[in-house]
């Protein structure tokens, strides 16, 4: 075991993993985190805690991760390169591990321009690729990025994101390979809507042997409405929403769109379960945590394995 995290145990035991996501509040109320956690507890193997998502200031992801641990859930601590330099990152990794955090997701982070402090200076001292190798070096070699020894290796299950849909498509799988060679243990993908393109991506990853070197969790975000689908298609960079999704949602009454969105997600999950090279699903039910129990149930994900 690299970290002994629940997620790692589920995956190494060969179970189909199921992870969730929780955005910390824009304020100091621990209650907000606890309220959302209720819906996720026992229904997912690990919960991603976003780090100043879309460059909006929120409660620190390590702090919300700790609240989650208090509630008996396992966090997947996200860290972006936008907000801290290599000293702060390594310090946070050590602190997080000391307090029981065992999974980490290494990300570049959305550009500050998207958020509520658009004129902030983005740090990007190191990038997500370099962050992955930093965590690995700390964990496996017991060394800081500088090469100096550290006492007490942080046991972290190292994660990264992958966007199979961004251009150039033919480069995506090589980028995944690069992250794997940098040291990731598991990968969560961008929300998938274009299944044809994703199948092709996974086929390439299988051919290159990548799916044997790291666990791949397919990203799923159920569409809450036609409006959301259109927004994701038109406005969110790097998102690929095919016309079929739009027309399926268009085909049902307004009050049935959410149900249709869930149905699409369930069909996707069913396919992922059978897909070679996919080891789990990462469910990003954005501000829809209360629907997670139902989705988990209907997707046949319950009960979660005890490992």
């Amino acid at each position: 075991m690299k970290s002994g995290s629940n997620l790692e145990k589920v995956l190494t035991a060969g179970h189909f993993a199921f992870t969730g996501e929780l955005g910390p509040p824009r304020g100091a109320h621990a209650e907000e985190v606890r309220k959302k956690a209720v819906f996720l507890k026992g229904r997912v193997d690990s919960v991603n805690i976003t780090d100043n998502q879309t460059a909006m200031v929120r409660m620190a992801s390590w702090a919300a991760s700790l609240i989650l641990i208090q509630e008996g859930l396992e966090p997947n601590y996200q860290m972006v390169c936008r907000d801290r330099n290599r000293l702060a990152m390594q310090a946070d990794i050590l602190g997080a591990c000391a307090l029981g955090i065992r999974n980490m997701l290494c990300l570049s982070g959305d550009h500050c321009q998207f958020g509520d402090h658009p004129t902030a200076k983005g740090v990007f001292d190191i990038d997500s690729m370099q962050l992955i190798s930093t965590v690995k070096k700390m964990r496996d070699e017991g060394k800081f990025l500088s090469g100096a020894d550290l006492d007490g290796k942080p046991q972290i299950f190292i994660g990264a994101a992958s966007n199979p849909f961004a251009d150039p498509f033919e480069w995506r799988v090589h980028r995944l390979a690069k992250k794997i060679s940098a040291g990731v243990d598991f990968v969560q993908t961008q929300c998938i809507y274009n299944m044809a393109k994703f199948r092709e991506f996974i086929r390439q990853a299988n051919d290159m042997g990548l799916t044997e070197k790291a666990y791949i969790l397919a990203g799923v975000t159920p569409m809450k409405s036609l409006g959301m689908a259109k927004y994701m298609k038109g406005k969110v960079p790097g998102m690929d929403v095919p016309d079929e999704i739009i027309s399926r949602l268009q085909g049902v009454a307004r009050d049935k769109q959410a149900e249709e969105g869930i149905k699409i997600a369930l069909e996707q999950i069913a396919e992922f379960k059978e897909m070679k090279g996919v080891h789990g699903v990462h469910l990003m039910a954005i501000e829809w945590e209360h629907r997670v129990p139902e989705i988990a149930e209907r997707a046949g994900m319950l009960p979660r394995p005890k490992v």
């Binding site: 570049s108 998207f114 990038d127 997500s128 370099q130 251009d167």
Partner: peptide, 18 residues
């Protein structure tokens, strides 16, 4: 925009930056 040494990031958008 992020000064990445191992890009592109996930936000790359049909040839444009996020």
């Amino acid at each position: 925009a992020k000064g990445l040494y191992n890009g592109p990031c996930g936000g790359t958008n049909k040839g444009s930056c996020e």
